[in-house]
């Protein structure tokens, strides 16, 4: 279960980390109940500051994707089965909108946007 970061990227490292972990969960490689490595272990493996990993774990906790249990560490929550909450749904659409708008402005046709979305879904869900 590899994750990779790009230290020179414009995207902050803690966001890259959180994104990678979310992707592993979406793909089913990380399952509910699995534990993430300790902040120190992951930070030293990636040669990054412990605060960076900590920030990323807290972001994931804030989104309800993991829970941080004192002494046992960061534990993955199971994928939500009973449908997304209104609040989360609103947040995701809010984030999706500027990206789609940017794609249109930069000349991506609606068909390609649809196609890409479908292909991303296929790679993540393996359907």
């Amino acid at each position: 279960m590899f994750i990779q970061i790009e230290p020179t990227s414009d995207i902050p490292i803690y966001t890259q980390l959180a994104n990678q972990i979310i992707e592993l969960i979406a793909r089913g490689q990380l399952k509910g109940g699995d534990t993430l490595p300790s902040v120190r272990a992951l930070a030293s493996d990636l040669s990054v500051n412990m605060h960076t990993v900590n920030k990323s774990y807290h972001e994931l906790e804030h989104k309800g994707i993991i829970r941080i249990v004192p002494k046992s560490g960061a534990i993955i929550n199971p994928i939500v089965q009973e449908g997304i909450t209104n609040e989360n749904s609103r947040r995701i659409i809010e984030q999706l909108k500027p990206i789609i708008a940017e794609a249109i402005v930069l000349g991506m046709s609606p068909e390609v946007i649809q196609e890409q979305t479908t292909s991303i879904l296929i790679t993540l869900k393996g359907e």
Binding site: I3, I5, L46
Partner: peptide, 10 residues
């Protein structure tokens, strides 16, 4: 340039 880690290394 990327850096890589395995969540299960330890």
């Amino acid at each position: 340039q990327i850096r890589i880690a395995d969540l299960q290394s330890h």
